[in-house]
Design a protein around this nucleic acid. Structure first.
Length: 482
RNA sequence: GCUCCCGUAGUGUAGUGGCCAAUCAUGAGGGCCUCUCGAGCCUUCGACCCGGGUUCAAAUCCCGGCGGGAGCACCA
């Protein structure tokens, strides 16, 4: 083995037991309550990457087992988000198609004496659990429990009255692992199954069953699921199923961003946010709008890896990766925020010339012609500099001297060595432009007529990289980063 | 309260007993270059949570602290 230290790591560590014939089978399991956000993208990218490394298969499993939390729009939004991320889904599964299967499994467990139907008040049940005590229902035999299960499944009870519980051990030292609920009744129509069912599985049942049924070889999830993994382990053991390899990565915290789907959804309803792609929120569609490329997100998560340490997302690092990807392709244009008009005395003809990309002359140049006196706009801060210093260089055009009106002062580029500031400018015929800033506010100004299409990421010189959103009588763009 | 997980620079990461007076990236400072405050080049700053032990040798193994996080839902 050749040691390759000093190299920036660009691949993930090998998975445990990854030499599966036909490649690993992995899954992502989004709850369809809204579109994907940056946090979700980690598990999606990592799973996808491992599947690709071994030529395996990736299952996208919609965990829509709580009808109260399903947003019917989310199914296709998530699919779109995954596609945008470049995640290859080989099979899509809806848990809402599989309720009967979960019922069958719980019936089996009940027959085996590993599950019971509890009719206790949920608070009492919880308190007894904390006290390591079994409730009255726990002791009843399989016969009685099967009878109760039938009643539960035939709407004999009302919601909250009965629940199917998987037995573990009431005196398990870890309180999180003492008996857990597997099925319960919810009287709420489901977007996909309507009111055909009203008994829904809890995730520990449905996840264990599905991971087994679909032959998942490796399960990757946040370490907040560590206890769920243990709970699901009981089901595997009771049914003599082989467990997949479980990998738990550390929790992700993402600063300065609203991530919680419910909070964003609420904000949209209340008019606080304009939609799921509002630049202030952390959804993938917001990041896409902001000109963050899916490759940058992928590279970012590959760099972070799958350690169990909690990580804090660094926007700086993500932006740096994005800049690296976007910079070589980004056309340069002049955008002038807070424009101030400057009249320039001039008695010749000239033409400005600025490259579309300073390091790639083959991309061409932008030109503007001038004859006689002319006017340009520069930003107010540069205008102050002009008054302070008396001179400014209009990049690619000429130098100007301040006065009553300004004066063309030659085209000697070397003035910059004497400390003359080189600035961007907007010629007559420029378009009004507004740039959506990360705080949701707008920066208005003028932009030179630009050869760019919606979706392009360009650089507004001395301002930053932006993603063009629309171009017609005016230009609308979204700020990405410096 | 109980249980579990984790602890390398501001951030992320490499490192699995000697090649570590610790890698790479990002960031911050300085310089060069460039008709952008972008890119590029050079350079500086900056970390093994603490304390014991094992060993000729510990970031790496063991024990104990401390710190951070998570779970103990009829959410996922």
């Amino acid at each position: 083995m050749v040691k390759e230290k000093k190299e920036r790591r660009n691949s993930l560590p090998e998975l445990e037991a990854s030499d599966v014939p036909g490649g690993v089978v992995m899954r992502i399991a989004p709850g369809p309550s809204g579109p994907l956000h940056l946090g979700h993208s980690r598990v999606a990218v990592l799973n996808d990457e491992y599947v690709k490394m071994s030529g395996g298969r990736l299952v996208n499993r919609f965990e829509d087992t709580n009808p109260e939390k399903v947003d019917p729009e989310a199914y296709h939004m998530i699919a779109e988000d995954l596609e945008w991320l470049g995640v290859d889904v080989h099979e899509t599964v809806h848990q809402s198609d599989r309720f009967q299967r979960y019922y069958d499994v719980i019936r089996k467990l009940t027959e085996m004496g590993h599950a019971y139907i509890c009719l206790c008040d949920s608070n009492d049940w919880r308190e007894m659990k904390v006290a390591c005590q079994a409730c009255g229902c726990r002791g009843s035999g399989p016969e009685d429990n099967l009878e109760r299960l039938d009643r539960l499944l035939s709407s004999h009870y009302s919601a909250g009255e009965a629940a199917a519980v998987v037995k573990t051990a009431v005196d398990h030292p870890n309180p999180a692992l003492r008996d857990f609920i597997a099925l319960r009744q919810v009287d709420h129509p489901h977007p996909r199954t309507g009111d055909r069912y009203n008994v829904y599985p809890m995730m520990n049942l449905s996840v264990a069953v599905d991971d087994h049924d679909f032959g998942i070889t490796h399960v990757m999830r946040g370490k907040d699921h560590l206890n769920n993994t243990h709970r699901q382990g009981f089901i595997y053991d009771y049914l003599s199923w082989t467990r997949p390899v479980f990998i738990h990565y550390g929790l992700v915290s993402i600063p300065d961003t609203v991530l919680k789907t419910s909070v964003i959804g609420q904000g949209i309803k209340e008019g606080e946010y304009k939609g799921w792609d509002d630049v202030r929120v952390g959804t993938l569609r917001a990041l896409r709008r902001r000109g963050i490329s899916p490759e940058a997100i992928r590279r970012y998560w590959l760099e972070v890896g799958i350690k169990q340490v909690d990580v804090q997302v660094s926007w700086d690092n993500l932006f740096a990766i994005n800049r690296d990807i976007v910079e070589p392709e980004a056309k340069r244009f002049f955008f002038v925020p807070e424009p101030v008009k400057v009249s320039v005395e001039f008695d010749g003809t000239t033409e400005s010339s600025c490259p579309l990309h300073p390091d790639r002359p083959e991309m061409g140049v932008r030109r503007h012609s001038f004859q006689g006196d002319f006017q340009v706009h520069i930003c107010s801060e540069d205008h102050e500099e002009l008054r302070r210093k008396g001179m400014l260089r209009l990049k690619g055009l000429c130098n100007i001297e301040s006065g009553e009106t300004c004066r063309h002062a030659g085209d000697d580029k070397s003035v910059s060595r004497q400390g003359v500031r080189i600035v961007q400018w907007a010629p007559e015929g420029s378009l009004p432009a507004e740039v959506v800033m990360p705080d949701g506010g707008l920066t208005r100004g003028l932009v030179e007529p630009l050869d760019a299409s919606p979706g392009d990421v360009v650089q507004f010189e001395r301002f930053g990289f932006v993603r063009i959103e629309s171009v017609d009588d005016g230009v609308r763009a979204v700020y990405a980063h410096r």
